[in-house]
């Protein structure tokens, strides 16, 4: 049963036969290698640029240029000097809406991963160290969550939470919870598989033989070595969450209008693809650039955290 869960591991796995390095060495090494990875740096640069632009947009008119929700009669324009990305069905500026969409989609992507990370780590560790029965139960629980009727769950969650006037639970939060609640199983399997395979490694056996406590082994030896693959998986999870949100928007279950994530913009624009293709091209392009950035960063991180390439 270790199988499919551990199976993800070889992709990212730590195949070092040697003694694990100290905490600091691992991370500073990784960072150094990361800096040398041009593609990863490109991704990081692109991401930072987009992020900064979308964040300052709300503060600076020079960047945002138009209010994202202003309905005008200049509808369905292509790109112009005034409207860089054109306008949509209601004459709203697509440039401003795309910047807003980036903001929201990144919130959803990052927020989802926070949920995924906490649930995934908890259940992964629980499965790996909780004994055979616990392990079995946790793994079957992940099976259940994987086949869970998520659409029903999301409809219900929205209905329960929306319009209750709970300040903290905005539409974006509901979306984060809804996607996160279902996406964590991958991380849980990854963590569990990683933990189990590390448990068999020489350095852990050695530490055990030297009389290290179980807690110490887990915290100093196993968690740091698990974190690498987990971080990589999380970077890939961000764009996946952005995609999941796009699919939900396609079904009309996106975040509340007039705010729009990139997914909502693409799903709405897709209805007008023949009227004004730019409605789709720019938000979809933004998703693609975000995807690419995170992919490059993820690849870079994986290479950087792979001990075999460690100098």
């Amino acid at each position: 049963m270790a199988t499919q869960d551990a199976a993800v591991a070889p992709l990212f796995a730590d195949h070092s036969d040697g003694i694990v390095r100290g905490h600091r060495g691992l991370w500073s090494d990784a960072w150094r290698r990361m800096l040398q990875n041009k593609l990863a740096m490109l991704g990081l640069g692109a991401l930072a640029t987009i992020l900064v632009m979308s964040l300052v947009a709300t503060q600076m008119n020079v960047v945002e240029r138009h209010a994202p929700h202003d309905i005008t009669t200049a509808k369905q324009l292509g790109p112009t000097g005034d409207h860089f990305f054109g306008t949509d069905q209601l004459g709203r500026d697509t440039w401003a809406r795309t910047l807003e969409g980036v903001r929201i989609s990144l919130q959803i992507g990052l927020g989802t991963q926070l949920v995924v990370l906490s649930l995934g780590l908890f259940f992964g560790v629980l499965a790996a160290f909780g004994g055979k029965l616990t392990d079995n139960l946790v793994m079957r629980f992940t099976d259940i969550m994987f086949s869970f009727p998520d659409l029903l769950f999301i409809i219900l969650l929205r209905e329960i939470l929306n319009g209750q006037g709970i300040k903290f639970l905005t539409g974006t939060m509901v979306m984060i919870l809804a996607i996160g609640m279902i996406a964590w199983t991958t991380i849980a399997r990854l963590v569990r598989g990683q933990m189990l395979s590390l448990g068999e490694r020489d350095f852990v056996t050695a530490a055990r033989a030297l009389g290290a406590t179980r807690w110490r082994i887990v915290t100093t030896h196993m968690l740091p070595n698990t974190l690498g693959p987990v971080i990589v998986a999380v970077t890939f999870g961000i764009p996946t969450a952005i995609f999941a949100e796009a699919a939900l928007s396609f079904l009309g279950l996106g975040i509340p209008a007039p705010a729009a994530s990139l997914g909502t913009l693409v799903a709405d624009g897709n209805r007008f693809v023949q009227v004004n293709v730019w409605n789709v091209v720019f938000p979809a392009g933004a998703i693609a650039v975000l995807m690419l950035s995170f992919t490059f960063i993820g690849d870079g991180l994986r290479d950087a955290l792979d001990p075999r390439t460690r100098g």
């Binding site: 929205r158 209905e159 209008a257």
Partner: peptide
């Protein structure tokens, strides 16, 4: 969305769109 914008600009009030 059109109503939301109209109410905001004409009346100065906010409405919340519940898409279900």
């Amino acid at each position: 969305e059109f109503l939301q914008q109209s109410y905001k600009s004409v009346l100065g009030i906010n409405i919340r769109i519940d898409q279900v």
